[in-house]
Write a protein that binds this DNA or RNA. Sequence first.
DNA 1: TCAAAAGTGTTAAGTTTACACCCATGA
DNA 2: TCATGGGTGTAAACTTAACACTTTTGA
Lengths: 227, 227
Amino acid sequence: MAPEFYTSHSKVYLAIDCIIFGFQRGELKLLIQQRNFEPFRGVWSLMGGFVEADENLYDAARRVCEELTGLKNVYMQQVGAFGAVDRDPGARVVSVAYYALLNVDKYNPELNIKNSSQWRNINELPSLYFDHAEMVAEARSMLKRKISREPVGFNLLPPLFTLSQLQALHEAILGEKIDKRNFRKKVNEMNFIEKTNIIDKTGSKRGAHLYRFNDSIYQKEHKFKLM
Amino acid sequence: MAPEFYTSHSKVYLAIDCIIFGFQRGELKLLIQQRNFEPFRGVWSLMGGFVEADENLYDAARRVCEELTGLKNVYMQQVGAFGAVDRDPGARVVSVAYYALLNVDKYNPELNIKNSSQWRNINELPSLYFDHAEMVAEARSMLKRKISREPVGFNLLPPLFTLSQLQALHEAILGEKIDKRNFRKKVNEMNFIEKTNIIDKTGSKRGAHLYRFNDSIYQKEHKFKLM
DNA sequence: TCAAAAGTGTTAAGTTTACACCCATGA
DNA sequence: TCATGGGTGTAAACTTAACACTTTTGA
């Protein structure tokens, strides 16, 4: 039993909600789930779960994300804590939101049936359970800021990708067109984006060079650049 | 009693920790507290408290901050949730950290005796309880980013201030010198920083113009600039 | 042969940085 | 009279933005 210092206060359930981003056919998508239990059966919501007694927050987020996508080692970042008193009708539940970036190619689409989930375009979401839309908005704005300063987009792409794909990804996240020449010029200055000799013909007749992200070069070049 | 859906999971104590920033004599300071109870009596920590059953997180943060500073309506921003399993020796406590910006002039120094607290230079902090140093580091980095894009510094200054004070504040937050002419040039372009005809002679023989922040001009000019 | 995506440089505009001296005043 | 902080402009460096045509190839 915890000392009186603690027990004079009330406890809460602690949940995790995952804003799972994916990139598919040029669109930024979110994996959302239709509740198949009461209350609010049929309402769309984020993928969620509870934090257990022996779990760190980040570990819980990873576990929840893995349970729902089958994928380990996904890039995740905390969005923040959401704790309006009435945000859950059944009990006092405070939720810590995390966003995840994953490569949709690795996602097994059969899970959509099992979890009653769908990948939906970020700009065409149905209305979401409670404060989930707020979490999504916050996560998206964090992602926008992040991708303008750090190479996190690679988590949403296959290991080898074309510059057109990378540009389309940036455009989808930022919600605006980018000039092709300016974009390629900037990418060229980033030594950690390596050109390979492999040509990908799935996107065009002519074919495009595939590139890869070299994390160890990135680590070296950016170990001082903290802001 | 909450439905079984919830009760199969464990609950946690939810705490608030406040990173209270102040600006005094050209230095960025933090209000920290020496624990006067066991365990870890005498160890320095952030100002904290628990979230109660009927409280939103933000309201709890405001309450805790008010209890410890006597000040209402302080500017506060969430830093994030910190929930390592063993971060508190007495019980599972997850803490949501908030930073606060306040005008030290309004702070009643007698509270320092009552709370065994002190204003300490941000660069000369003692070692802090558990993960509090991590919270401070994160809050400081958020504040740095914030002040480069939004006028939040005014919360740390009196309503009327000189440009030298404003510059010293920015320098203290960013941790680097700023060129005086470049700084003033930029401030001049910000219409929401209004020059008054009042001269302040406390800082120099010649005296300096006092300025004020005009929030309604700021709101008008920036209603579109979301990023 | 032509539609569709890949690839490629230059110039103008805007922003950021560097830099040094005179002013007003109270002690 | 002089030490102290207040106040002012310009030019170079750098970054960002705008812009259009040629190449390759499978259908």
